[in-house]
C-alpha cells in the first residue's frame, strides 16, 4: 500500500515536472521569450530589462531552476492587462468557475444517472437505443455550439434567458447545460455499464433469490453499488470541467478561469496564459493522484499489484 502510494506520488511529480519543462521549453524555443513576456508594444529598452530580470542570457538549466523556484513560491508574475499578481487573479476567478462546474455537474448527473439506469434495466429495448443516441449526440456536438444554439433559441427568439454575464440563477442555466452536455453523455454511459455489472453480481442474484420485488432489488441493492464508480468519476470530472470550460465561458462571458485564459490569449497577456495552464495542470494531476490512492484504499487488489 505504502509502496503503491509512493509510486503514484512519484508519477504525479514526473507529470508536474514534465508539464513545467514543456511549458518552459516551449516559451524559450518558439522565438524570443522576452517578446512573449513583455507587454505588447514594449520598447527595446523594456525588452532588455526583461532579459535581465529573467536571466535570459544565462544557461537554459539555470533559467529553468529559477523559473521553477518562482513557481513554487506562488510567484507567477504580473498580469499586463489587469496589473495585478497573476496567482491572485486566478484565485479571484476560481469561485465562478467552481460554481459553473458544480451546476454543470448537477445537470450532468441529474440527466446521466437516471437515463443510464433506465438503459441498463431495459437492455436492448427502445430505452437503451434512445440512450445510445443521446450519448452519441452528446459526444458529437461541440459544447460551445450547444451553447450558441441555446442562446439563439432561448435568448434571441424566446427572450427567456440572458445570453451572457453572471449574477443570477438565470445566467447560470445555459452555460451549465452546455458545459454539462458532454458529461451527461459520459455519465450516462458509465452508469449504464456499471449498473449492468452490478445487476450481474452475486449479491443481486441473492437479492432476487430472497424474493424481493424487482423495484427493491434495483433501488436498494443495485443502485447504491452502481453509483460508486460514477461518483468517483464525477469527482475527477468536476476538476476537468473547470479546465475545459474555456469555450463555454467565452461564449457566455462567464467570469471564470476559462474566460481568464481566453482574455490572456486575446490580450497577449502571457503570464496569465502560462499561469492558467500550469495551475490547471496541477489541479488535474493532483486529482488523478487522489483518485488513484482512493481506489487503492477501496479495492485491495490494487494494493497487492503495486
Amino acid at each position: 500500500m505504502k509502496k503503491y502510494i509512493v509510486k503514484r506520488l512519484g508519477l504525479a511529480l514526473i507529470s508536474l515536472l514534465l508539464l513545467s519543462i514543456t511549458i518552459f521549453l516551449l516559451m524559450r524555443i518558439t522565438g524570443d521569450p522576452a517578446v512573449l513576456l513583455a507587454e505588447p508594444g514594449a520598447s527595446a529598452a523594456d525588452l532588455d530589462a526583461i532579459r535581465q530580470q529573467f536571466g535570459l542570457d544565462r544557461p537554459l538549466w539555470t533559467q529553468y531552476v529559477s523559473f521553477l523556484t518562482h513557481l513554487l513560491r506562488g510567484d507567477f508574475g504580473q498580469s499586463f492587462y489587469y496589473r495585478t499578481d497573476v496567482f491572485e487573479l486566478y484565485l479571484s476567478r476560481l469561485p465562478a468557475s467552481l460554481l459553473l462546474a458544480s451546476a454543470a455537474m448537477a445537470f450532468s448527473l441529474l440527466v446521466g444517472i437516471p437515463t443510464g439506469i433506465i438503459a441498463a434495466v431495459r437492455v436492448n429495448q427502445w430505452w437503451d437505443s434512445g440512450g445510445k443516441i443521446f450519448a452519441l449526440l452528446g459526444l458529437s456536438m461541440p459544447s460551445f455550439w450547444v451553447g450558441l444554439l441555446m442562446i439563439l433559441f432561448f435568448s434571441v427568439y424566446l427572450g427567456w434567458l440572458p445570453s451572457s454575464g453572471s449574477g443570477t440563477v438565470f445566467h447560470l442555466v445555459m452555460p451549465a447545460i452546455s458545459l454539462g452536455w458532454l458529461f451527461a453523455a459520459v455519465h450516462m454511459r458509465l452508469t449504464r455499464s456499471s449498473m449492468l455489472d452490478v445487476l450481474g453480481s452475486e449479491y443481486v442474484k441473492l437479492a432476487r433469490l430472497k424474493g424481493l420485488p424487482e423495484a427493491l432489488v434495483i433501488s436498494k441493492h443495485a443502485f447504491k453499488n452502481a453509483l460508486i464508480p460514477v461518483l468517483t468519476l464525477a469527482g475527477i470530472n468536476l476538476v476537468i470541467m473547470v479546465n475545459v470550460a474555456v469555450v463555454v465561458e467565452t461564449v457566455f462571458a462567464w467570469p471564470g478561469v476559462g474566460r481568464l485564459l481566453y482574455e490572456g490569449i486575446a490580450f497577449r497577456d502571457f503570464p496569465v496564459v502560462q499561469a492558467t495552464v500550469l495551475l490547471g495542470g496541477v489541479m488535474i494531476v493532483v486529482v488523478n493522484l487522489l483518485v488513484d490512492i482512493l481506489y487503492a484504499v477501496i479495492d485491495p487488489r490494487i494494493r497487492y499489484e503495486g
Binding site: 508519477l11 507529470s15 515536472l17 508539464l19 476537468i240 496564459v273 492558467t276 495542470g281 494531476v285
Partner: peptide, 15 residues
C-alpha cells in the same frame, strides 16, 4: 502516463 495526466484542451490552447 505523465502526458495523459495533462489537461488536453488547456494544453492545446496554450501551445
Amino acid at each position: 502516463d505523465a502526458w495523459l495526466a495533462l489537461p488536453g484542451v488547456t494544453f492545446a490552447i496554450f501551445l
